[in-house]
Write a protein that binds this DNA or RNA. Structure first.
Length: 275
DNA sequence: CTAGCTTCCTGATAGC
DNA sequence: TGCTATCAGGAAGCTA
């Protein structure tokens, strides 16, 4: 379940391995992962293009190409993007292999096939990916208590659910919403319209802090990444809230609990995060 | 407009 | 051992 920090890790590891390489050939083994345009055009359009850079927006990755066009992708639940030598063993659930100059391959592996690729021509209006609907990045200086209040303080939905809304702040999923709410000491099921001024302030502080912490602790070498360290996307022992039900709270020792909020599992400390 | 449910998928795990 | 049921969750699509 890659969220913003894991996608950022992928970008940082792959960018230096991809920049300057030419896409020689594209082998789409499962057309299902190509969202736009059709698989055949997608392969044709990419062939011959040179990669000039990589970017990230929310949980989306962008592979920038020399003519100003762009390969966008979303890893969703189980997607993995690898740069491998040509003779690297092919994993099960490999859906796309792009041959690159210099004897490398760009491979997409995705057990559950929820991930998607889009090819966008230069200046093509992006009405396909959903990227244009994204809210601000967690490290945007515009992310303040006032910003959050203006966007969601009138909502009756649980704050945990609103954190998952990519049009407010981009990049937060179920793992980091648990971590953010634990850090901010807010009960996950608390309604947005019932948050106090203090809670808005703590939330605005915890979002960038927790995401930056995630990026930092997720760092690994390209070798570790290729060897599969990134496979599970997160070392759960690093996390303080997500997956910690039944364990003592790292702040106060109270046994952590698990509830369901908006259909998502949610771990919290009943003493630190009071209703 | 929103709330709530279903869909897409496979693999790990729980229970019998 | 071997079967079935449940859960994991990002985001879109659907209904009421």
């Amino acid at each position: 379940m890659p969220e913003l920090p894991e996608v950022e890790t992928v970008k940082r590891i792959l960018a230096p391995q991809l920049c300057g390489r030419r896409i020689e050939r594209v082998n789409i083994k499962n057309a299902q992962v190509i969202a736009h345009p059709d698989a055949e055009s997608f392969a044709d359009l990419l062939t011959g293009k040179t990669i000039t850079g990589m970017g990230r927006r929310g949980k989306f990755l962008r592979v920038e190409l020399a003519d100003g066009s762009c390969l966008c992708l979303h890893l969703r639940m189980t997607g993995r993007l690898l740069v491998t030598p040509t003779d690297f063993p092919e994993e099960k659930h490999t859906h796309l292999i792009a041959e690159l100059s210099g004897g490398k391959q760009l491979r997409y592996i995705d057990v559950r096939r929820f991930g998607r690729f889009w090819y966008l021509k230069k200046d093509e209006t992006d009405v396909f990916t959903g990227m244009s609907q994204l809210g601000i990045e967690p490290d945007d200086p515009l992310l303040t208590a006032d910003y959050l209040r203006t966007k969601i303080a009138n909502k009756k939905k649980a704050i945990k659910e609103m954190l998952h809304d990519q049009s407010i702040v981009a990049g937060i999923g179920n793992i980091y919403s648990d971590e953010i709410l634990f850090d901010a000491a807010i009960y996950p099921e608390k309604k947005c319209c019932e948050l106090t001024a203090d809670e808005w302030n703590r939330l605005a502080e915890s979002i960038p802090k927790t995401i930056a912490w995630g990026i930092e602790t997720d760092a690994m070498t390209p070798e570790e990444y290729l060897a599969g360290k990134g496979k599970e996307y997160r070392n759960t022992p690093d996390l303080k809230a997500y997956g910690s039900a039944g364990k003592p709270c790292v702040r106060c020792g109270t046994v952590m609990e698990k509830i369901t909020v908006g259909g998502r599992s949610s771990c919290f400390c009943p003493a630190c995060q009071r209703m």
